[in-house]
C-alpha cells in the first residue's frame, strides 16, 4: 500500500495555504507534518482524507485493493474534536463507532485497556478529564481497523505517560502494516519517521 501526494496545494477562504507538496509513504511508514501555527497542517490532513477539496495536484492510494477504494474509506481521522458524546458512557461511545465504522478490530474493553482507561468505561464521557477524553478518542482508532491513521495533534492534553503509551500504539500499528500521517508540534518519539515541514521554514 502506498499513499502519494503530487504537487498538492490547498486553499482556505480563497487564500492559498500551501502548494507544491510532494511526499510518498508506504506500509509501515510514518510521516510527521510539522510547522508553525497556520502553516496548514490541519488543512493538509483534511485535504488528504477528502474533507476539503485539493486546489491542485493529486492524491494517489495504490495497492490498497478493492477493500479501500479511497483515502477516506481507508483512514481513521482523529481531528481536534474527540467525536464523543458527553451524555453517553465511554463504552457506549466506542461501541457506536465500532459498529458504525465496521471492520471490527479490538473489543471495546481491550481498546480501553490499551489506552489506560480500562476501569473507566462505564463513566459518562462528560466526567472524564481532558487527557482522558483524548485517550478515549484514541481508543476509537483501535476498535475498528483502518490501514491509514490521519492524526491531528493526537497528543494534545496527554501526560507524558499516556504519550509513551500512544507512541507504542503507533509503532504497533506500523508493525501491522499501517500508515501514519500526524500533524504535531511535539516530537512523537517514533522510530525512523519521514518529516514534512510546512510554512516559511520549508
Amino acid at each position: 500500500m502506498r499513499l502519494t501526494a503530487q504537487d498538492l496545494g490547498a486553499e482556505r477562504g480563497g487564500e492559498r495555504i500551501f502548494s507544491g507538496l510532494h511526499f510518498a509513504i508506504g506500509a509501515g511508514e510514518a510521516l510527521l507534518v510539522t510547522g508553525p501555527n497556520g502553516a496548514g497542517k490541519s488543512t493538509l490532513l483534511q485535504v488528504l482524507c477528502g474533507l476539503l477539496p485539493a486546489a491542485e495536484g493529486t492524491i494517489l492510494l495504490e495497492g490498497a485493493g478493492e477493500e479501500w477504494p479511497t483515502v477516506a474509506a481507508a483512514a481513521h481521522y482523529l481531528g481536534h474534536g474527540n467525536a464523543m458524546k458527553p451524555a453517553m458512557s465511554v463504552e457506549e461511545n466506542l461501541r457506536f463507532w465500532r459498529e458504525f465504522n465496521g471492520e471490527p478490530c479490538l473489543e471495546v474493553d481491550e481498546a480501553l485497556e490499551e489506552v489506560g482507561l480500562g476501569s473507566l468505561g462505564y463513566l459518562p464521557f462528560s466526567t472524564l478529564s481532558t487527557g482522558q477524553r483524548r485517550r478515549a478518542a484514541i481508543a476509537r482508532l483501535l476498535v475498528s481497523w483502518r490501514p491509514i491513521w490521519l492524526l491531528d495533534e493526537p497528543t494534545a492534553g496527554l501526560d507524558a505517560r499516556s504519550e509513551t503509551r500512544f507512541t507504542a500504539l503507533m509503532e504497533a500499528h506500523r508493525a501491522d502494516g499501517g500508515l501514519i500521517i500526524a500533524a504535531t508540534h511535539w516530537p512523537l518519539h517514533l522510530q525512523d519517521v519521514k518529516e514534512l515541514v510546512l510554512g516559511d521554514a520549508a
Partner: peptide, 16 residues
C-alpha cells in the same frame, strides 16, 4: 459538528 462527529460521519460516506 461541535464535537467532530460530523467529520467522521461525512468521511464514512464511502461505507454508508
Amino acid at each position: 459538528r461541535e464535537d467532530g462527529s460530523l467529520d467522521l460521519l461525512v468521511l464514512a460516506a464511502e461505507r454508508h
